[in-house]
Nucleic acid binder design. Structure first.
Lengths: 195, 195
DNA sequence: TGTACATCAGTGAACGCGCGTTCACTGATGTAC
DNA sequence: TGTACATCAGTGAACGCGCGTTCACTGATGTAC
């Protein structure tokens, strides 16, 4: 039953993708190795051919969310201000709020990451730093230090707002939280606010 | 072994206090009924004389955190702007960040609350609403609608910032997140910024 | 290039463990007369 | 007010369950000659 190297690599990638989505949707603790493997079309025993432990999977899944906010931000940073603003504005929309399983893990797993092990926290810190750095040049501040500060301020606001918008059981309040935050994001970018 | 009514009420209160702290410190899922009861000086079997289920305990613990941010905010709202600003400013300090077990459950359990059941989410939403309403009059906005919006904006920012400040593994970055957010809180209050 | 052997991806049963919950029991408290 | 009985707070063993992890096994892939 041995698989070819290409197949093995693909299986590993599939496990990571499944885990990454499941962690965001159901939470890290609440998602079992068995369930991840079943969703990936495998039995649970094979898991340890690809990862040393669930902990290692968590760290890799948080780091390598295939299509995530970090890579989007960095790609947008190269494209320019218009692209960056779009990435940030899209973050505080009902569509993004409801699409938990492909959204930013910092918001989806925030309080769980606080209690995660050293390795996972380091990976999460790195993700945060990279977004901060990618966005800073577009914050319309006078110097680099202030730009980083502005970037920290608006991103922490977005993360908090998205989390609370998902938590509240009142749809009107949830939309209000998003629209208030969207306004703040728009104001943070230096150029005049479109839309 | 039956206890008097007064003792029973006190036991129930003690279980709630222990649970409330443990949930914030270790997370809701990660905290077991057995551990809570042991910390309260009891055996696990007696738990069900006080609560129908762990779920019910969670809802009550989130609602009734004995000395929490909600009651602080409402008390401050009666005392006036100076008191309210102090409560908000204290939220984004290293001391508050490190005192997880008595801090705001919206930050300590944010992403866990998103996935909690209807009852728990309702209780959490109510807590959020009450803080928003208590703080709104001090936001220095023209009308009530704008005041509520300003209140939502600054509070979601504080929750996100506190969560990320706890998550990052770089102490300098953590302090920076707090100080940036503190500045934003100060700017939100209408009066001139002291300190 | 063809063959023989070693490697290892994936299977599925089993491991110890702690979870939330139940339950028969104890004996002090509360209540009815 | 005093007594007899019912109530029930708390105990500790036990329940089924799913968790992360291990392991002997299978057989296709990779490698050495």
């Amino acid at each position: 039953m041995r698989k070819s190297r290409a197949e093995t690599a693909e299986t590993r990638k599939r496990i990571l993708e499944v885990a990454s989505k499941a962690f965001r949707k159901q939470g890290i603790e609440a998602t079992g190795v068995q369930q991840i493997m079943a969703t990936a079309g495998l039995t649970h025993g094979g898991f340890y051919r690809h990862f040393d432990s669930k902990e290692q999977l968590v760290a890799e899944a948080i780091a390598c969310s295939p299509k995530n906010f970090v890579t989007d931000s960095e790609a947008a940073a190269e494209k320019g201000e218009e692209a960056m603003r779009k990435v940030f504005m899209d973050y505080v929309t009902p569509a993004y709020r409801d699409d938990v399983e492909v959204s930013c893990p910092l918001a989806a797993n925030g309080s769980e990451l606080v209690r995660a092990n050293e390795n996972v926290r380091h990976v999460a810190t790195d993700a945060f730093q990279r977004i901060i750095n990618a966005a800073a040049p577009f914050m319309g501040s006078r110097n680099e230090d202030e730009s980083i500060n502005a970037s920290i301020s608006v991103l922490t606001n977005m993360i908090g707002a998205l989390t609370i918008a998902r938590m509240v059981d009142d749809p009107a309040l949830s939309e209000r939280i998003l629209s208030v935050t969207k306004k703040r994001v728009a104001e943070t970018f230096k150029a005049k606010i479109p839309q």
